[in-house]
Each structure stands twice: as structure tokens, then as C-alpha cells.
Nucleic acid binder design. Sequence first.
DNA 1: GCCAACGTTGGC
DNA 2: GCCAACGTTGGC
Length: 141
Amino acid sequence: MKYWLFKSEPSVWSWDDQVARGAAGEEWDGVRNYQARNFMREMAMGDRGFFYHSQSARAVVGVVEISAAAHPDSTTQDERWDCVDIRAVTPLAAPVTLAKIKTEPSLAEMALVRNSRLSVQPVTPEEWRRICAMGGIDPEI
DNA sequence: GCCAACGTTGGC
DNA sequence: GCCAACGTTGGC
């Protein structure tokens, strides 16, 4: 089981939008960045990810599960672009803000901190447990 | 709204 | 293949 992080502008696609899709999940489409696409190609069904709000919110707000492995992005005919499907698992009891993540030395190496523009990124098991603890949820959820 | 960081494009 | 110009993202 691997861990990931998905970044979204809440005004475009928010955690509430994701929750509204329920168990059916939703394509994580629209990614036009090779690095982000390559990470999605590495994902397997059942992998977990954090759902992060960028822009004004700037916080990890929920946990998602990969509900379909990489497949062609339905929003383009361009065959270079693949995406996965994700479904909401649980909100964090308390959102973990970027500001708080930046105060945590053990999280200083996160792509979220080091490369703020990468919209899909891997998370280590240690980072996963740390943020789950900060967010007040069970890391095994 | 501004700007830094980064990715992409295209001329040479 | 290099690099300048440009566009986009996201933090502040």
C-alpha cells in the first residue's frame, strides 16, 4: 500500500464535491504535468491519499482511496494523459494546515513543502502517520 | 494582486 | 541541444 497527496483548488473541485460523489468516486482528470501523471500511473487500487485544498484554504482536509488504476483521461483525446479515480474515505477530524506542516521538522522534506507546484505527489508512510496524528484520525482508516 | 518557482515551447 | 520567452501554479 502506497500513500499519495492530491491537490485541488476548492473553488474548482472541493472535498465536499468529492464526498458528494460517494463510493462511485470520480476521475482525477485534467492533470497535464508529466511528473504528476507518472505518479498516477504508479498508483494501485486501494492506495490511500490525502486530499489537499490549495489557494486560500491550504490544508489537508481528507483521506481518499484509489478506486481505479490509471486509465485515459476522459477530458482529452490526447493519449499522453492518464488519470486515476478516487473516492472519499473520511474527513480529518481537524484539517492540517500548510502552516502547521511547515512547523514540523519531520515533514520538511514533503513535496508539498519543497515543490509547491506539484499537484499529485507521493507521501512516505512516516509522513502519512504524522499527518494522520495531527489531523486526529487513525492512519489505518 | 503580486511574484517566485517551475514547466513548456519554439527559434536558432 | 540550448536557452530565452512565455504561461501556469500556488503561497503569501
